[in-house]
């Protein structure tokens, strides 16, 4: 409180006190207990745990499927944002309002629905089974669930930028003789690229930590379709707290790296929105 500059508005002490108390109880103390607990582990133990073949396999599953799902979301998100910003057509508002569904629908509900649809006896699974493609209990299934979870991120990240770059630059490029595709590639795309990458990284971080919608469709076979959050879960169920904590720390580290990249591109994207306004 010593660094506070004088404000004429009253109520700082009380408000600051209440916010800090709740913040400490809910976020700071629990996170500290993770740090305290892991400091009791020796570096050698920690290393032994996070390099177990089963744990390494779970990182591989999580990273691969999250990456593929986020690439799909980046491409589809770009198309959807373009359609929702640039075109007028009947039903546009409904499509736009639907984008947030993955936020509103509980993950477990999405999980059982996607799993039940895509098992070989389910309506969608049976269709693909004719061609010899299995969805549920494979990488494909995990990716499908993660695509569902990640849909809103890229769309909502690109939309505001696309709304701002409307118009003049494109006109100019066109008048100077650039083709339609060239205009997009050289004029529009550089403007939306930071927002696209910010949306991609956000979706990637979210997919990496996702649990509810993935566990039902994943099959959870050790070494094959076991995702990293499930790895933590099964270690917890065996009351192996050191192992759970070590894997959790590794995942937190990955999340922070991704979010750091995200923050960099996020600020570039908002500079574009702000600068053109």
């Amino acid at each position: 409180m010593s660094g506070k500059t004088k404000s004429v508005i009253p109520g700082f002490g009380l408000s600051f006190g209440i916010s800090m108390t709740i913040l400490s109880l809910i976020v700071v103390i629990p996170l500290c207990s993770l740090v305290v607990y892991s400091s009791q582990l020796s570096m050698a133990d920690f290393w032994e745990i996070i390099t177990r073949p089963r744990v390494l396999a779970s990182y591989k599953v999580s990273l691969t499927t999250s990456f593929i799902a986020s690439i799909i979301n980046a491409v589809m998100g770009l198309i959807m944002a373009w359609v929702l910003v640039r075109y007028e057509f009947p039903g546009k508002r409904i499509l736009d309002g639907m984008i947030e569904l993955p936020f509103a629908l509980p993950t477990a509900v999405a999980g059982i629905s996607l799993a039940h649809l895509t098992v070989s006896s389910g309506p969608v699974g049976a269709l693909f089974a004719n061609f010899g493609i299995d969805i549920a209990y494979t990488y494909t299934g995990i990716t499908v669930a993660m695509v569902f979870v990640g849909i809103p991120f890229v769309v909502r990240s690109i939309q505001p930028v696309l709304e701002k770059v409307e118009g003049e630059y494109e006109e100019a490029a066109f008048i100077m003789g650039a083709g339609r595709f060239e205009t997009f590639r050289r004029v529009v795309f550089p403007e939306i690229r930071p927002a696209l990458i910010a949306g991609f990284t956000m979706a990637f971080a979210r997919c990496l930590g996702e649990y509810g919608s993935v566990v039902f469709i994943a099959g959870n076979k050790p070494y094959e379709t076991e995702i990293a959050p499930l790895m933590i879960m099964s270690e917890l169920q065996e009351f192996d707290y050191p192992a759970a904590t070590s894997v959790a720390l590794t995942m937190l580290l990955m999340a922070f790296v991704i979010l750091f990249v995200n923050a960099v591109f996020q600020s570039r994207a908002s500079a574009i929105v702000g600068g053109i306004r």
Binding site: P30, L31, S33, L34, Y37, A205, L208, G209, E210, Y211, G212, P229, L230, I232, M233, L236, Y241, A244, T245, A248, M251, L252, A255, F256, L259
Partner: peptide, 13 residues
Amino acid sequence: TVSPIIAGLIFVL
């Protein structure tokens, strides 16, 4: 940004 499983874990700890 914290995985829900990790959120659960920190309260267990």
